[in-house]
Simulated scan of single mutants.
Amino acid sequence: MKALQLIRVTSSVPPTFAKANLPIPRPQPGYALVQIHYASVQPSDRMNAQGGFPYTTFPRVPGRDYSGVVVDVADDTNDAKTWIGKSVYGTSGSTLGFGVDGTHAQYCLIPQAALVEKPEPLSHIQAATVGVPFTTALMCLRRAQVTANDIVLVLGSKGAVGSAAVQMAKALGAKQVLTAARGDDSKPDVLLATQDLAALLKDRISALTNGHGVDVVIDTVGDPALMSATMEQLASNGRFAWIAAPRGNVDKSISLDIFQAYRKGLSLLGCNSASPTVEELAEQLRFMSDWIDRGLLKAQDEKDFDVVILDDAIEKGYGKTGKVIIDMS
């Protein structure tokens, strides 16, 4: 089978990236062989190719998200065999592409317990794009324990995780869902286009919530100044969940009035998309299936992504920062 493969001789140098012809994996007990149709290139995949994760073992086929068809299973039971021929999709935390070979190949071994049937409204291309962003958004909302009484603010609402979080907060029945983004093309409730973020957020959030403040913030941006300014707008018992932080040799600290934080009963919730197991993420995808079937949760249009063939994926997929899907055919 054709595959992409990372090789790293020593931790002192970045991995090398190459196309490879590898044996098709043989199903092991508890696993299914999935023929990958499409796989997205997530930011974490690009970071993995640069040696950004110390727990990655080499040589390694990268890739976390996928859609495809089950072609074989090892278990000789009727329940296992019913998966053969079904269209499936999925994602991974720090397993696929890190500790075991991932989805940027024509075939991949997936734990049978992690198989999730692709919802009918999603094309195979769309299904390959939703794994990391959708499960990350749901992780944030679950950890923040969003209820129908909550006003939710999503920072970075135009992005993949942010736009999913907006839809999911509405699907969960949140009382009010507010959006914040730096670009005005999505017409956010809060346009983050000023240097004085604290004053901007204070005025806009107060006006939008009748002075109540926000009960939950889902932060997909990870900017310390924005984070500090937004925390001031949390209502009593407010929860702040975030998924990102600056990288490199820059200041990652935030300003927090701990007196006000404990008086208001605030909770800070860091959400790491690499933490869940592939089986746990499969449960999240199954949970979302009803929303997808009912049209409450929609993936981005196929036209929003560049589809590249596997032979071109290193240059045109990993070598750029846009939204890229690898066609494995």
Rank of each mutant, 00 (worst) to 15 (best):
D215C: 07
T220P: 04
V216T: 12
T220W: 04
N210R: 10
L226N: 13
D203Y: 02
F259N: 14
L192R: 06
T220M: 09
F259L: 14
V214N: 00
N237A: 12
A180H: 08
K158M: 13
M168N: 00
D219A: 09
S228W: 10
A169V: 06
A114L: 05
V190R: 04
D223Q: 14
P133D: 08
L138I: 07
P224S: 13
G213V: 02
S255Q: 14
D257V: 06
I205V: 15
R182V: 08
I258Y: 10
R247V: 13
A198V: 12
S228I: 03
A229V: 05
T136K: 10
L155K: 02
K170N: 12
I205L: 09
G159R: 05
A148E: 15
S157M: 07
A225W: 00
S253C: 03
A113V: 13
A137S: 14
V146I: 13
G162F: 06
C140A: 15
K170M: 12
R204G: 03
A229N: 02
Q145W: 01
Q176N: 13
R143G: 05
S255K: 14
P119Y: 08
S253G: 07
P121G: 10
L172C: 02
T209N: 00
H124K: 09
D150L: 04
A235Q: 05
R182T: 15
P121D: 11
T147R: 01
I205G: 03
D215P: 11
D257Y: 08
A174V: 09
D251K: 13
L234M: 06
R239Y: 07
A165W: 07
M139D: 15
S206Q: 10
A180C: 05
P246W: 08
K187G: 00
Q176K: 15
A241G: 08
I125F: 03
S157W: 13
L141Y: 09
L226G: 07
F259I: 14
I205H: 03
T230M: 08
L153Y: 06
N249S: 11
V132C: 03
D215Y: 08
A148I: 13
V190A: 03
Q167N: 12
R239H: 10
K158F: 05
L256A: 13
K170T: 10
A244L: 09
A229F: 04
V152K: 05
S228F: 07
S157T: 10
N249M: 11
Q233S: 12
Q167I: 04
V217D: 01
L201I: 01
F259M: 14
A160W: 00
S236T: 12
V216L: 08
V116I: 13
A169S: 15
K202M: 09
I125H: 01
T194M: 03
P133Q: 11
D185S: 14
L141A: 11
R182A: 12
V250M: 11
T147K: 01
L155E: 06
W242P: 00
C140H: 08
S123A: 09
V154Y: 07
L122S: 05
V146W: 04
V161L: 05
L155V: 09
N249Y: 04
L234K: 02
G211R: 05
L201C: 07
A127P: 08
Q145K: 13
Q176F: 03
T220N: 02
M231I: 15
P133N: 13
T194N: 06
L191A: 03
K175H: 05
G156D: 07
S206G: 15
